[in-house]
């Protein structure tokens, strides 16, 4: 069996949906599920049929400059692009997985006209009421999902760069909120800020070693 790293995403699932009669197929992916800070961002992308984006792979395998280049190209050439998010406060309230699904729902609803078919990375979204297929490792296998993963990742990175200006002490510009050694050290030093996810360890252990919430 070929290693998945060698696979490049193609239009197979899109073609399958087209054959079944669907006309507006949106690829959905998210970025920022793992970090300790910042929102989770989801993107929905409707690509033109048959259009190939040279060099498009899932966002994790791309260099930053390649990602930026593809971001510009996809934004320009796609039939439709939309992003949605759920911020740290929501993540603390409902949990990261429900928050991710909410972000995806918001991305879909932000499209200029509703898609009739969704290709989603790994997460079924039956509540949208739209025919869809959730594909594990979808960002490696489907062109539309790969495109959405690029849009989501780059958008989130740019957002974290802005948050860096507001909270420079954590150096969000470098690690985007992920739990790198640098971030953990700075988190220890300064304590968490408003955009840290308090339900994530290590933050939950720092400020609220017991998670019950005292009332005023």
């Amino acid at each position: 069996m070929t290693s998945l790293a060698a696979v490049e995403p193609d239009g197979f699932f899109e073609a399958e949906a087209t054959v079944r009669g669907f006309r507006r197929i949106a690829g959905i992916d998210e970025a920022g599920r793992g970090p300790l800070a910042g929102p989770v961002v989801a993107a929905a992308v409707v690509l033109p049929r048959q259009k190939v984006f040279p060099g498009l792979k899932d966002s994790k395998c791309l260099s930053p400059s390649e990602r930026n280049r593809l971001f510009a190209e996809i934004s320009d050439q796609a039939r439709d692009v939309s992003v949605g998010h759920a911020d740290a406060e929501e993540i603390d309230e409902i949990g990261i997985v429900p928050a991710t699904r909410k972000a995806m729902g918001r991305a879909v609803r932000g499209l200029s006209s509703p898609p009739d078919y969704l290709l989603i990375d790994a997460v079924p979204l039956p509540e949208m009421g739209i025919a869809h297929r959730a594909i594990v490792k979808g960002d490696l296998l489907s062109r539309s999902i790969a495109a959405a993963s690029v849009i989501a990742k780059v958008t989130r990175d740019r957002l974290m760069a802005e948050l860096h200006d507001r909270y420079p002490q954590y150096n969000f510009l470098a690690h985007k909120g992920y739990g790198t050694r640098e971030h953990l050290t700075l988190l220890d030093q300064f304590g968490p800020c408003d955009v840290h996810r308090r339900c994530f360890r290590p933050i939950s252990e720092m400020t609220f070693p017991r998670l019950d919430t005292p009332t005023q």
Partner: peptide
């Protein structure tokens, strides 16, 4: 995407966020 980024930030900081009680 710049409009999105600005909108996200204004939502985040519009209310004085959860700095006080520590509840979620």
């Amino acid at each position: 995407w710049q409009r999105f980024v600005t909108a996200v930030q204004s939502v985040m900081f519009r209310l004085r966020r959860r700095g006080t009680q520590g509840s979620a």
